[in-house]
């Protein structure tokens, strides 16, 4: 019988949707019991959200002022203690989980299964390698805990409707003082979150400037979409790094993805492989993006985008 502990990701106030997606991944293991661990300074609201996820049996709450910010060196020893008695420990393959989970794995004396995209059995998983150009199926040994990160773009969020028990616990781990949080900067834009949005409008190098990127923001607002960008646009300084979509940025799975002035480098396509519909607008009809796009329109984005926005009424 698989007993799975999921490490909840949150911002101190709300649960991140990556947690509900990790629950869905865990639920693919037949007969699994799924618990969620919430480590926070003030956990009540977050734990209540986690307890409401369908499929969750129990929410373990560790409240500690030291857990205010998600520092791997602080969280990992606590998670490793909580992992006793569990066959699997899952976290999301977001920057949060990628940072923390390998540290947990090392403390438990195992290597990690990174980026689970499909579950073939309790110990058999599919994961992308070579930037998604190959899919590896691996079998972890049955006698050791499975520590893994879940590729959130591959799973839908678990629905609400659960009513799990909430239990306060004290893992009793010694916490280091060698790592200190200083600050976090990120845009609060009022737009949908890029990682979980149903619609995404992304711009590339062809936009030419930060000023011209307003075209993308404007279209996104018209569509109620999140804004993304190619690595080239981020490197050129048109937009901040947190908008980057691709292998080294965010891997997303929206219902519809608009790639505007994006050529479609492999590393970018890796980030949108799971998008339901890809729409490409590019003046170069030979651009690789058109090989993967469901709908393509060849032409000058500076004419097309305003026209498109207007046509949406």
């Amino acid at each position: 019988m698989s007993k799975i502990l999921i490490v909840a990701e949150h911002d101190g106030a709300k649960l991140n949707v990556s947690t509900a997606k990790s629950v869905t991944c865990a639920a693919k293991i037949a007969g699994a019991t799924i618990d969620v661990a919430v480590l926070a300074a003030d956990a009540a609201a977050i734990a209540a959200e986690a307890a409401a996820l369908a499929g969750v049996s129990k929410v373990l709450v560790v409240e500690n002022a030291a857990n205010k910010e998600p520092l791997a060196a602080i969280l990992a020893p606590q998670i490793a203690k909580l992992a006793a008695g569990y066959t699997h420990v899952f976290g999301p393959s977001t920057t949060f989980g990628k940072d923390i989970m390998p540290r947990v794995a090392a403390l438990l004396g195992v290597s990690q299964v990174s980026d689970i995209m499909a579950v073939d059995g309790s110990h058999t998983f599919k994961r992308p390698i070579y930037a998604g150009n190959a899919i590896l199926t691996v079998e972890a040994p049955a006698g050791a805990p499975v520590v893994a990160t879940v590729r959130v773009a591959s799973f839908e969020a678990a629905a609400a409707g659960g009513s799990a028990a909430i239990e306060k616990v004290d893992p009793g781990a010694a916490l280091p003082s060698h790592t200190r949080f200083v600050s976090r900067s990120g845009a609060t834009t009022g737009r949908p979150d890029l990682q979980s949005a149903a619609k995404v409008v992304s711009g590339g190098r062809a936009l030419g400037s930060a000023e011209n990127f307003k075209l993308i923001y404007s279209l996104a607002d018209k569509l109620g979409a999140a804004v993304g960008a190619s690595r080239a646009a981020v490197d050129a300084g048109y937009v901040p790094n947190d908008l980057q979509v691709g292998q080294t940025g965010k891997i997303i799975a929206p219902q519809v993805y608009f790639a505007i002035g994006i050529s479609g480098a492999i590393q970018h396509m890796t980030g949108i492989k799971d998008a339901r519909t890809i729409v490409a607008i590019n003046k170069d009809g030979e651009a690789p993006i058109f090989e993967s796009a469901d709908i393509g329109l060849v032409g000058d984005l500076f004419t097309i985008v305003p026209e498109f926005e207007k046509a949406l009424g």
Binding site: D11, F96, R184, G186, Q195, D242, K250
Partner: peptide
Amino acid sequence: EVDSGLETL
């Protein structure tokens, strides 16, 4: 570089 932007430690 984190999902929500930049974090300084």
